[in-house]
Design a protein around this nucleic acid. Sequence first.
DNA 1: CAAGCTTATGAGAACGTTCGCACTTTGTCG
DNA 2: CGACAAAGTGCGAACGTTCTCATAAGCTTG
Lengths: 363, 363
Amino acid sequence: MPASPRITITQVAAEAGVSTATAGRVLGNYGYTSDDVAAKVQAAARKLGYKPNSLARSLVTGKSHTIGVVAADIDNAFYARVLRGIGDVARARGFGVILTNSDEDLEREKDAVQLLLEKRVDGLIVAPCDVRGSAHLRSLIAGGCPTVQIDRASYDLAADSVTVDNRGSAREAVTHLLKAGHRRIAIIAELEELHNGSLEEFVRQAAHFSTNGETLYPSWQRLQGYVDAHRDFGVPVDPGLIGRVGSYSSDAACQAATVLLQSPDRPTALFAADGTMSIGMMQAIADLDLQIPEQLSIICFDDLDWMKFTRPAITTIHQPVHRIGSMAAELLLARIAGDTSVPKHNVLEARLQVRDSVAPPRS
Amino acid sequence: MPASPRITITQVAAEAGVSTATAGRVLGNYGYTSDDVAAKVQAAARKLGYKPNSLARSLVTGKSHTIGVVAADIDNAFYARVLRGIGDVARARGFGVILTNSDEDLEREKDAVQLLLEKRVDGLIVAPCDVRGSAHLRSLIAGGCPTVQIDRASYDLAADSVTVDNRGSAREAVTHLLKAGHRRIAIIAELEELHNGSLEEFVRQAAHFSTNGETLYPSWQRLQGYVDAHRDFGVPVDPGLIGRVGSYSSDAACQAATVLLQSPDRPTALFAADGTMSIGMMQAIADLDLQIPEQLSIICFDDLDWMKFTRPAITTIHQPVHRIGSMAAELLLARIAGDTSVPKHNVLEARLQVRDSVAPPRS
DNA sequence: CAAGCTTATGAGAACGTTCGCACTTTGTCG
DNA sequence: CGACAAAGTGCGAACGTTCTCATAAGCTTG
């Protein structure tokens, strides 16, 4: 077993009695090579236990065959599955994946991008924590690094994106609740960042925003869908029913849900805007010992694996999460391969998965 | 905004009017440097938008400041959280993390290790899919690549490992059920690989195996704990209650659980050996509409986030999952830093988290 | 049969860093 | 004041590949 001494292409060449150039050609299979020489070199390589050095190769070719991923938090079912999608595509194409977490913190995101850039990744998949297209991403893209945004997207960022139709599917979900007869529907969402006005202002204007031109966080888009559905039904939106969770944690969501559910005129239905919010919401419901759907109807955005076997099973919005990752990777690899067409913004469909957590409200 | 033309240390040096060596010293901060020259170089670097090239650096130093991770499946709450632990430590120390999935397939694991090796990672964290210490891992370690095993471990592999006390905590869980009065307790576990005899043989001999010397899959160790507890109580093990799931999927687990629960003399309690098995088991229970804990008591190995708010909340074995990852990373970084002490095998404690899914069996 | 391909090989220069060495200059100590 | 260490700098050689070029042999082909 050839141990510590690293075997280089030069040594293989010496062993095979050819030049390093020739050895390089057969080992890296490029250029012309005769069969007998190839065989000799391969035999020498096997005998010596040669392992190519990607770093040297990348240094000269300028391609590292590696993509960088900046996720918010890998310990979150959504990102875990997205990453799986990315990894599957990457592996099939011989690419490595370097993973970093930003925790929705802009400084960390910058550091992460910096690290990945220094490691000379061929491209980046990022869930940007500032949706307005922060400067570092802008200069990154201007610098020619292929980039794909996932989950959220600045449309003015000149980079591809893969998202879901947050507004439309949230609208569908809330419509489902309204059709069931609910009129006091609360939403639980992380809605920290808002730059152009107050929440009330946002709700008032929500209907006028077009979906495409806007670059909003998914939570805000889902809130838009919530407002849309209310407008469709002529039901006024009560700002008191908007559970604005201050930080992205299920504990905070639990608190917000608890407050809502303990208010005197409590909502008859709850809509959780994502998986983390759902977990907090479920905890609050369990703590208060409310019966679903008799005492409370619920719908969760994002269809986590446990939602189909809780009793009752939970009605959800099912996002094609794996597909988000695989599509992002495919887009990115196409860019890396030289695709220079205009940025594509892919909006995937999410579907309402009706189960048993919605019933008419008790009068 | 300096766009495509990549700025090198040489250009920065020229701009600052010093040699590349000096520029390198200040930019890479090694060697001696005077304050005024350092300032000049830094100014030049900032002006030109210099970004160091890790590949070139790694090529000469031989250190890539990157660790490779071979997980079974990142789209699994356990590995996702482990990876988070790894990532947190790595980031704090300025290391990158390259992630690969093996899907418990030896060929994929080989490919993954090969890829990581070519990318010249400084060390490897791997959940080996063959617990007997497959040849490629052996030669990897012999080749001097620092390696840490997680979740499972070959003790004869001369590499550190981080695992949990599977046998002891499974024993504790099953003891909890036995104390509650259960005598027909089923276990649902992926128990595909078994090399030294049949399942019956294994059960017969389980009590004689020592925990430390053995290198078994977690599932098998948990089965050992199951057998241990039965022996403690003088309750014979009925092989018919061992739900041997053929493949590592929740669907397969659901099938196995369904068969068990529909048998004429059905078990009064179920023990799921890991998170994936738990999901399948819960689905089966929901499909058959069994009441927990009135009609069936359950305990799940691995405390997934939803298990505390299902009704009833589920009694579980809580593993320190994040800690497994962070400890593995710490161990690995210590090895990379030069620690050459004998391999450490860390066995972390898992604790029984008592909730409401266990009650005495109905007579 | 000379001109022009295609195939095959080697020499040597990249790629962008770090590092060993030689060379100053400055400071310190006996 | 001479010696000797320490601080600061530059030159040029690594690191392990790929890639351009030059060379040459074996073809076809008009």
